[in-house]
């Protein structure tokens, strides 16, 4: 009995070790990619959103950072500039707007709302400062604006 069990399970055993290996390699690869991307963004000096959540805790695809080089909408819908399949996001959840050298955030009437540093947004546009924590759906981002950040 034991012999059958063992000679069958050995394949599963070895397969699991290899899946383990590949899943780690994949995560390391994702890390490196995001680090590289971040590096190039920093070179551009464009403001960006940095994900605070651990990516492997989220079951949907999300980048480590999103550059805000121009006006961008964020939402669950595919047509949103930043499209993330978080079920707690609305289709068109919020919009980042460039105005007079700073970036404003506007909630587009989302169902679950948008928080900046824990404060819920109304339908007004709110200017973002370097280091602001933005929460929407299950996501939490850090707003990074190096140009502005250097001053503070």
């Amino acid at each position: 009995m034991f012999e059958i069990l063992s000679s069958l399970l050995k394949y599963i055993f070895i397969t699991i070790i290899y899946i383990f290996l590949f899943s780690i390699i994949r995560l390391i690869y994702l890390d490196i990619r995001s680090v590289n991307k971040k590096a190039s963004d920093l070179a551009e000096k464009a403001p960006y959103l940095k994900l605070i959540n651990r990516r492997d805790e989220l079951y949907f695809k999300v980048e480590e950072s999103y550059i805000l080089s121009r006006d961008k909408s964020l939402g669950r819908a595919a047509k949103a500039n930043i499209s993330i399949e978080d079920p707690f996001l609305s289709g068109e959840h919020a919009r980042f707007i460039h105005r007079d050298g700073s970036i404003l955030l506007k909630d587009l009437g989302s169902k679950n709302g948008t928080l900046i540093n824990g404060v819920r947004l109304t339908d007004e546009e709110v200017p973002l400062n370097n280091g602001d924590k933005i929460e929407m759906g299950q996501l939490a981002f850090l707003f990074v604006d190096n140009e502005a950040g250097e001053g503070t």
């Binding site: 034991f2 063992s6 899946i19 383990f20």
Partner: peptide
């Protein structure tokens, strides 16, 4: 490999290993 978290791998290996060792 996408939905598989590495820690599961360790738990599964231990599970299989020790079930086998038990028998």
């Amino acid at each position: 490999s996408k939905s598989f978290k590495p820690i599961y791998g360790i738990l599964l290996v231990n599970l299989i290993g020790f079930v086998l060792l038990y028998f």
